[in-house]
Design a protein around this nucleic acid. Structure first.
Lengths: 242, 242
DNA sequence: ATTAGTAATATGCCAAAAGGATATATGTCA
DNA sequence: TGACATATATCCTTTTGGCATATTACTAAT
């Protein structure tokens, strides 16, 4: 029996199959820093480290459906901008058993982020420290609001790092920035989101021009309130789906 | 028992687990058209339709390793530029049983493409027809060299379409174009690859300027042979990994 | 040999886009 | 009413890309 015949006759049911899970990167921009929601593990392995909310994929459940189920049950959130990121399949990424994990990321405006923290009290708000610049990529570090390091479980530092890299790459040709903002926002807030994701500051007039030229912002005529100086105009986003 | 406790107590071994496979998109540019290598299925389901080379992921094998194994055993090729594309997990994508497939794509220069066709005679060269423009995305169609339609198995038309979309997106900030060219190539050949992937023609002087300005091409001083007119200079690519 | 033909290569010009500095406008608050 | 802070507008410079055209280098035929 040659190799081809062997592979053609391969019956997956006769062999062990890996478990398949989804992990959710719940990302936002809080106080001018990238942030994510984490859970502290209460069991071995990686006891007491922080991990992404996740769950196993049911046999009659699509990957996307599994990601949405985790969003609903573990984060108690109806829906969000959600997108598949990458599939992590190293043999030893989970010391217990073979688990292949499909990472998804969801982008949330700060208000929904805060609501999730209230609805699911076991969630922790983590600031993400991105120790690389540009399109280098690599793992990121997580810190609590108090500045304490939050060690990450499994390969979740890589997952978060890849999510940050993907966000950077998609920033200027997709709607990801708007998914991180409330319905109404100022141009300054939009620029803050861009600067946070890119990890560098941007020229203000050039940024304004670029955004307004894209024809995806609609001015509301309303202005922000509570500012102790000239309030900025509030804009709304509409995707130009032609 | 509440939902959280249920999920925490979830033991994947007590439940059916999906099979996990990898499928390989072997892409190249042949005669100014995007092309891929396909296998005609000899069994149900999707009997006699064309499919991507693939295989199941072993329990002690990483996803990347499985992709390379398929490349070696089914395409008889030692190595290539290979990259994970996307994971397809619709419940009914395979009518037999639940199979989650991680799609990879490999980029090959035409010469290695031809060598693969010789080494693995069950492979078929298919031209890809991309029926959408820009970054729209969607499935693509496959045709034989004679122009006959090659119906694609499972969701492989979507996989190929996503690969084409990914190639378009990565074209101007990565080395994908060079992975589709031989060691030595002319600027015209490089431009042809770009035009094929983008599906539109490009301005020649502007393209030259852009490529030479990127500082990733090294002129060899040698010239192409066999042309019945002024032969173009041959270049080599070196990635600027700083 | 000479010349036509073809495509590579080089150059110059123009318009559009982007960066950056500065000026002006408009709100809050003392 | 005026100081102040930030939004918004304008100007200028640099860069980038499209496009046209000229020049070069090779083949092939007369």
């Amino acid at each position: 029996m040659n190799e081809t015949a062997f592979l053609d006759g391969y019956d997956p049911h006769r062999y062990d199959r890996p478990s398949v899970a989804v992990d959710l990167i719940l990302a936002s921009v809080v106080n001018g820093r990238p942030a994510a929601l984490l859970l502290q593990r209460s069991k071995h392995p990686c006891l007491a480290t922080w991990s992404l909310p996740g769950g196993f994929v049911g046999i009659d459940e699509s990957l996307d459906a599994a990601a949405h189920r985790v969003l609903e049950t573990k984060v108690r959130m109806a829906d969000a901008y959600i997108e598949q990121l990458y599939t992590f399949g190293a043999v030893d990424r989970d010391p217990r058993t073979r688990v292949i994990s499909v990472a998804y990321f969801a982008l949330l405006p700060p208000a929904r982020f805060a609501a999730a923290l209230k609805a699911a009290p076991d969630l922790t708000l983590a600031e993400l420290i991105v120790p690389w610049s540009g399109e280098t990529g690599g793992p990121v570090e997580a810190r609590s609001q108090d500045g304490d390091a939050l060690p990450l479980a499994f390969d979740h530092a890589d997952m978060l790092g890849l999510a940050m890299l993907r966000l950077r790459g998609k920033l200027d040709y997709s709607d990801v920035a708007f998914a991180l903002l409330p319905e109404l926002f100022t141009l300054r807030a939009l620029q803050d989101v861009h600067e946070t994701i890119l990890g560098r500051s941007l020229n203000k007039p050039a940024f304004r021009r670029r955004m307004l030229a894209a024809n995806t912002l609609v001015a509301t005529g309303e202005r922000e309130t509570g500012a102790s100086f000239r309030p900025a105009e509030l804009f709304r986003h509409h995707s130009t789906q032609e």
